[in-house]
């Protein structure tokens, strides 16, 4: 860990001020990913603004019937929150499928969204990595890439996004609220929060310097059934190889609404609206689910070691849809 100046402001205004005062400052909340990376010299912030004392730990109902989740609500508290369990079970399930009890007690909602990839090569300063060092090259392409992404990749980076929580939030159309150093607030979807790697894989997201995530807002709960299915190498305490968040609503034997998001396969929490649209108005069937999987995987690319994620995602998606629509595949 390279030495840093440290401050623990008491409120948002002071935190934003501190971040402006020392350009390049990074916010730290749970620290479960940032400190991990700092010890390895992968992250080297000169200034840390500890936002742990900020009043962002509430989960409240919005006037629209949704939920506003404070950025500092821990993953554990969010997963255990009665309203989340009742109305957004896919989110509770996704969080509980991730990390460990200890980590979930520390990791926060805002921090989880901004966690960085678990790519083996990103995690080792001795390996070339465009995400860590722009222009250095990508060691995962042509290397051991079992855990890497098959969707949203570029010639410069195939690192997968590791979050489970964010996958469920993407399926729920969550919006991320922020405050900028000038006090302005903004709200954006997860799609607008994240960036695809393209030619600049070192930039994970679109937050401005000093912009602070204050909350995640969930719209009113979707109709229908929800599920999060995670496939991993251990029974617990491992990152997703593939995960599927699905919310499906049926009426009179036909699918009326469907949202699907995927983890472990994309360079960001993945969603494919065309694939969702294929389901609408249709009666559930194995053939339909296969067509949906075709659409999700239309642009998927394997890199050798992760080729299996293509059939694995297909099978997991088809089985999830079959379960949610009540029919056996």
């Amino acid at each position: 860990m390279i030495a840093f100046d440290y401050i623990r402001p008491a409120d948002e205004t002071a935190a934003l001020h501190a971040a402006t005062e020392r350009p390049g400052a990074r916010f730290i909340a749970g620290g479960t990913n940032l400190l991990d990376l700092m010890k390895l010299g992968i992250e080297r912030p000169r200034y840390l603004v500890d936002i742990g004392a900020l009043d962002l730990r509430e989960v409240t109902e919005t006037s629209e019937g949704g939920l506003r989740i404070g950025a500092l609500v821990t993953n554990a508290a969010l997963a255990a929150h009665p309203l989340v369990r009742q109305r957004y079970p896919v989110l509770s399930q996704a969080i509980l499928a991730g990390a460990s009890g200890q980590l979930r007690n520390k990791a926060t909602t805002g921090g989880n969204l901004l966690q960085r990839t678990r790519c083996y090569f990103f995690y080792d300063p001795a390996s070339p990595c465009n995400k860590r060092e722009p222009g250095a090259g990508c060691s995962a392409i042509g290397g051991f890439n079992r855990i890497m992404a098959i969707l949203g990749t570029s010639a410069h980076c195939i690192a997968s996004h590791p979050s489970d929580m964010a996958v469920a939030m993407r399926a729920l159309d969550a919006r991320v609220e922020t405050r900028l150093p000038d006090g302005q607030t903004s709200s954006r979807t997860l799609e607008a929060l994240y960036r695809l790697p393209g030619e600049t894989p070192h930039v994970d997201h679109r937050l401005a310097p000093g912009e602070l995530i204050t909350a995640v807002v969930l719209p009113p709960p979707p109709a229908g059934r929800q599920s999060y299915r995670k496939v991993r190498d251990r029974a617990s305490y491992a990152f997703a190889l593939v995960s599927v968040a699905a919310v499906v609503s049926m009426r009179e034997g036909r699918i009326t609404e469907a949202t699907l998001a995927f983890g472990g396969v994309g360079t960001m929490p993945w969603r494919n609206r065309k694939a969702e649209a294929l389901l609408i108005g249709q009666a559930p069937s194995a053939a339909l689910f296969e067509r949906c999987a075709d659409a999700v995987l239309a642009e998927a690319t394997g890199h050798g070691g992760n080729d299996f994620k293509i059939p694995l995602l297909r099978r997991t998606l088809v089985a999830s849809l079959a379960k949610l629509t009540g029919g056996e595949p």
């Binding site: 678990r118 042509g142 251990r234 029974a235 491992a238």
Partner: peptide, 20 residues
């Protein structure tokens, strides 16, 4: 290509956990 150990931590070298 390099001889470097790819999975040099307990996050990616998977010893069994309780649930296994």
């Amino acid at each position: 290509r390099t001889g470097k150990i790819v999975n040099r931590d307990l996050g990616e070298y998977h010893v069994p956990a309780h649930a296994d």
